[in-house]
Simulated assay, not measured.
Amino acid sequence: MIIHDLDFAEMYREHMRRSDRPEKPASVWDERARSAGAKMMQGDYAKAFLARMDLSGAATLLDIGCGPGTIGVPLAGRLEAVYGLDYSPGMLECLTDNARAAGLDNVTPLLRSWTDDWEGVPVCDIAVASRSSLVPDMADALHKMTSHARLRCYMTHLVGGHFGDAAIAELLGRQVRAFPDYVYIVNILHGMGIHPRVDYLTFPGRLAGTRDAQEFIDKVAWSFGELNADEQARLAEWYGADPERARRGGGDICWALISWEPAGTLAA
């Protein structure tokens, strides 16, 4: 068997089916937009992502899974038009509010998901998918994204398949299967005749930086779902046993920043 005999698209789909975290409905993200929308607009992740983008020759941007506009809004002042696509009405409302607060009138919300029909979604110079790539069918998503970009595509995807909370899963006695790793994307793109560039962005995990045990427990519940009293007690004990470990919230999270040109290889 050689690499061309492997169906990475089907391997990805099977891996995603075996992951044991259900997809979050739009209502969950609507609630998160209200509670954390402004915070999601800030931080080192967005700065690192934006610093690695090449906007030369670009006038329009499609931001897929845009959330509150973490990537699209900071770029809108340098472009003619930004289209933010998301399946959460709450996130799109937050996107619109953030654009308005920045004095921008060139940001257009589009209520769509990765799996919806994209008829009417404009083809733009650049397409980005920032932390929004956990889709059921990666091959379909990559074809959609690539066909909606004239110049360049940028996508971040988990390295290792965990959000930095594997140790917490062990503490809770919950087996968490890893999500598909970024290497699926590289190989699916290779099968499409595209040779992408890969960079890595490493940051403290999503459980880092909590002010007290209750905030930490609430963050864990966001990742793992409802927690019973015994699980909450174990988390509180873990949090109080080592203040420095608690501050870090467990392991770091690493994102692969995968970039490519629709026509093939992205130049260094």
Score class of each variant (00 low, 15 high):
1 M>C: 07
7 D>W: 07
7 D>R: 08
11 M>Q: 14
14 E>C: 01
16 M>I: 03
18 R>M: 13
18 R>C: 09
20 D>T: 14
24 K>G: 08
27 S>G: 01
28 V>H: 15
28 V>Y: 15
28 V>E: 13
29 W>V: 09
31 E>S: 15
33 A>G: 07
34 R>S: 09
35 S>V: 13
36 A>Q: 11
36 A>D: 10
40 M>E: 11
40 M>I: 02
40 M>W: 12
43 G>S: 09
45 Y>Q: 09
49 F>H: 06
49 F>M: 15
52 R>T: 00
54 D>V: 01
58 A>E: 09
61 L>V: 09
63 D>G: 03
63 D>Y: 04
66 C>D: 01
67 G>A: 08
69 G>H: 06
69 G>I: 06
74 P>A: 07
75 L>Y: 10
75 L>W: 11
76 A>M: 06
80 E>R: 12
83 Y>H: 14
85 L>K: 02
86 D>A: 09
86 D>F: 11
90 G>D: 07
92 L>I: 11
94 C>D: 11
102 A>D: 05
110 L>Q: 06
113 S>L: 05
113 S>F: 07
115 T>P: 00
124 C>L: 06
124 C>R: 01
125 D>V: 06
127 A>T: 09
129 A>T: 02
131 R>N: 07
133 S>Y: 04
134 L>A: 14
139 A>T: 03
140 D>L: 14
140 D>M: 13
141 A>Q: 04
143 H>Y: 07
145 M>T: 01
146 T>S: 14
149 A>D: 00
149 A>H: 04
151 L>E: 06
153 C>A: 13
153 C>T: 00
153 C>Q: 05
154 Y>H: 09
154 Y>G: 03
156 T>Q: 04
159 V>R: 13
161 G>F: 08
164 G>S: 10
168 I>T: 15
169 A>P: 02
170 E>R: 15
170 E>C: 10
170 E>G: 11
173 G>R: 13
174 R>D: 06
177 R>K: 12
179 F>S: 12
180 P>G: 10
181 D>W: 08
182 Y>M: 01
183 V>D: 06
184 Y>D: 01
184 Y>K: 02
187 N>L: 10
188 I>A: 00
190 H>C: 07
197 R>Q: 05
199 D>F: 00
200 Y>S: 02
204 P>L: 02
206 R>K: 15
208 A>P: 05
209 G>F: 05
211 R>N: 13
224 F>H: 13
227 L>S: 02
228 N>W: 07
231 E>S: 12
231 E>P: 06
234 R>S: 08
234 R>K: 15
236 A>Y: 10
237 E>C: 06
238 W>F: 14
240 G>H: 15
241 A>P: 02
245 R>Y: 09
249 G>E: 11
250 G>K: 14
251 G>P: 00
254 C>H: 11
255 W>Y: 15
257 L>Y: 07
258 I>V: 15
260 W>S: 00
261 E>W: 00
262 P>D: 04
264 G>T: 04
264 G>V: 00
265 T>L: 09
268 A>V: 13
